[in-house]
Design a binder for these strands. Structure first.
Lengths: 194, 194
DNA sequence: GGCATAAATTGACCGTAGTCAATAATATTG
DNA sequence: CAATATTATTGACTACGGTCAATTTATGCC
């Protein structure tokens, strides 16, 4: 017999996430300790792992919250400029740091089911596909491929650009970023036609 | 004063890598314990971390060895079929498991300097660029973008396909793989022209 | 309400990655 | 060949993620 989810369960989960939010805000994702989370949330360590498979799943859930909120206002782009703008904002949201990139790489697909990242990425790909379809219909973009395929390819290029902007050691980070952004623009132009 | 590298240093490093190779062969990357590595190599734990920043850097070095060997025979593809073949082989090499994908995501860029993965990827991108340039010159491919940009975009699509083939939990893995391969073919076709 | 069952929570405990002050081995210099 | 400076190695130690049998709390049913 499966029973209904207890209200206390959701409350506990929320307390954990709330504690996590605060810690990430001050110490960053890398600085988050599960001990600190459960201390702040007022639960035992075991409770944490009863709610989240491991530390990374917890971080992924937090990241999903943040990204979902920051991209909530996005709509399907109806012209080329809007599409470029959306891609640029996605890149900025994904390239915040190496942890974000790693979590996206691991949990943005089916592996992240139940954490929210997968749903977010699905939604974004749909937006992109819708935008591409509109512009193909208006004759403003080549019909070389199906909108869904182009959208997924665009997503892949954004991921790649975000990943290649993470250079933890050497050199001026601004230069690395600028290169990654330029690369993204050129790659998407190659994919969508000049 | 920087002195020359001691022969003993290289020997120790080799012993560690050799031990790692054996362990990965039997237990896989996820099953590798640093304790076991240093036991097999006959060194202390501290030595391991004097040679490799952390466990993941060590695994990345091992992966770089494997991939470099398995892709050593690749040459710049001179026609479309050869290019498709190369992409398919890259996909197969990268999509072996989730650990491989994660390591590539993290260390294939500048972050992996000194481990070999970055050099490998550079070489592969150069091969792709060379192939694209040849075919553009022969009029067999659109001149929409520079070869280097197209090559990097192809690399990104291969990474994405490899990542999306990693579905650790649900469903028939063959179906997931087949979808990823189909996606890769469609995306590259969209990028390079039908 | 009272009993049985399922779900949530607890916290002592464990395994392993990673640290570091001390020591040994090698290189350089005069 | 000392004497000295660098680099490599050591292994006991720490920090932290993750486990699990025991316990508490809620739910469903009569």
């Amino acid at each position: 017999m499966t029973r209904k989810v207890q209200a206390r369960t959701l409350a506990t989960r929320d307390r954990l996430l709330e504690a996590g939010r605060g810690i990430v805000a001050t110490s960053g994702m890398a600085g988050l300790r599960t001990e600190e989370v459960v201390l702040k949330a007022g639960t035992a360590k075991g409770t944490f792992f009863a709610h989240f498979a491991d530390r990374d799943h917890f971080l992924a859930a937090l990241l999903a919250e943040r990204l979902t909120e920051s991209l909530a206002a996005e709509r399907a782009p109806s012209d080329r400029a809007a599409l470029s703008g959306l891609l640029a904002r996605l890149y900025l949201a994904f390239a915040t740091d190496a942890d974000t990139v790693a979590l996206l790489a691991r949990f943005s697909g089916p592996a992240g089911a139940g954490l929210g990242l997968d749903l977010l990425i699905c939604r974004v790909v749909e937006l992109l596909a819708e935008g591409v379809a509109k512009q193909q219909a208006a004759g403003e973009m080549a019909n070389a491929a199906e909108p869904g395929v182009l959208a997924e390819a665009l997503m892949a290029l954004v991921f790649h650009a975000a990943a290649s902007a993470q250079c933890p050691v050497h050199g001026d980070p601004d230069i690395v970023r600028t290169r990654a952004e330029k690369l993204l623009r050129q790659m998407t132009a190659a994919l969508l036609g000049a």
